[in-house]
Computed example of a mutant assay.
Amino acid sequence: GAIQTLAIIVKVVDFKDYLNTAHLSKLDQIDTNTSNNQASATVAPNCLKIYNEFSPNDDGQNDYFYIDCIDQYPDNQLEIFNRWGNLV
């Protein structure tokens, strides 16, 4: 007769919407209410991530500037400042 909650934390790897469904597949006791053995949740991730390190000096580290999922935001503007706060 007790209520239990299962929390699941996951990492979404792209920007699509997902429907996650969980259901009981095996029990170690008698289930008197089979109507609550399944639940679903929709995930709509916000994947916009802006990296703040950029040094295009061909040393193999931070040579490319990436903004994940920028194609989802077509009306954007990018300004890059150097370490002293000056617009580059």
Score class of each variant (00 low, 15 high):
residue 2 A to M: 11
residue 2 A to W: 07
residue 4 Q to Y: 14
residue 5 T to D: 07
residue 6 L to N: 09
residue 9 I to K: 13
residue 10 V to I: 15
residue 11 K to M: 02
residue 11 K to T: 06
residue 12 V to R: 01
residue 13 V to H: 04
residue 14 D to H: 00
residue 16 K to W: 02
residue 17 D to R: 11
residue 18 Y to C: 10
residue 18 Y to T: 09
residue 21 T to E: 15
residue 22 A to Q: 09
residue 22 A to G: 13
residue 23 H to D: 11
residue 23 H to M: 10
residue 25 S to R: 09
residue 26 K to F: 12
residue 28 D to Q: 10
residue 29 Q to K: 13
residue 29 Q to Y: 14
residue 30 I to M: 11
residue 32 T to I: 15
residue 32 T to G: 11
residue 37 N to G: 15
residue 42 T to H: 06
residue 42 T to C: 04
residue 44 A to H: 11
residue 47 C to P: 05
residue 49 K to D: 11
residue 50 I to R: 03
residue 55 S to W: 01
residue 56 P to E: 05
residue 58 D to M: 05
residue 58 D to V: 01
residue 60 G to T: 01
residue 62 N to M: 02
residue 62 N to Y: 12
residue 62 N to Q: 10
residue 63 D to Y: 00
residue 68 D to Y: 13
residue 68 D to F: 10
residue 68 D to C: 06
residue 70 I to M: 03
residue 70 I to K: 04
residue 72 Q to C: 04
residue 73 Y to H: 05
residue 74 P to W: 08
residue 75 D to Q: 15
residue 79 E to M: 09
residue 79 E to R: 09
residue 79 E to C: 04
residue 79 E to G: 02
residue 80 I to H: 00
residue 84 W to V: 01
residue 84 W to M: 08
residue 85 G to H: 02
residue 85 G to A: 02
residue 88 V to D: 03
